[in-house]
Amino acid sequence: MRLTVNGNPIEIDAEAEMPLLWALRDLAGIKGPKFGCGIAACGACTVLVAGQPVRSCVLPLGQVEGDVTTIEGIGRPGALHAVQEAWIVEQVAQCGYCQAGQIMSAVALLDEIPNPSDADIDRTMGGNLCRCATYPKIRAAIKRAAASTGA
């Protein structure tokens, strides 16, 4: 099976029903998306497919229609995405396990609503669980990223 992940074509030898998350993590070695629940209830595995946010733990490979973008594809040390920069300025992460998913959801939100209200943030980010409860800082970082890209 052929996928495009972060701009790179990759060949995956797996069944069509294998969830994208596990193909990325265990077969392609792309570890940014995290396994948290397996039932799309925590958001740790969030990636973009054709620019839209998807919980990769429940997306079968056979239903991937479009390029896949993971946290590794939006920015890297030295060339961070504005959302990642904002996350650093606000010092959001604690344990950090959910943050790749949080950031991908925030990127998806800001792509469509460049200047989100609190309610917009709540409607997008309610799907991303954080047991360290970094929520106030996530909210601040999204607003910071919005301000930095909107300028």
Partner: peptide
């Protein structure tokens, strides 16, 4: 600044 922050925002 936390030493683990960049690793955690880049997956």
């Amino acid at each position: 600044p936390r030493l683990d922050m960049e690793a955690k925002v880049t997956g």
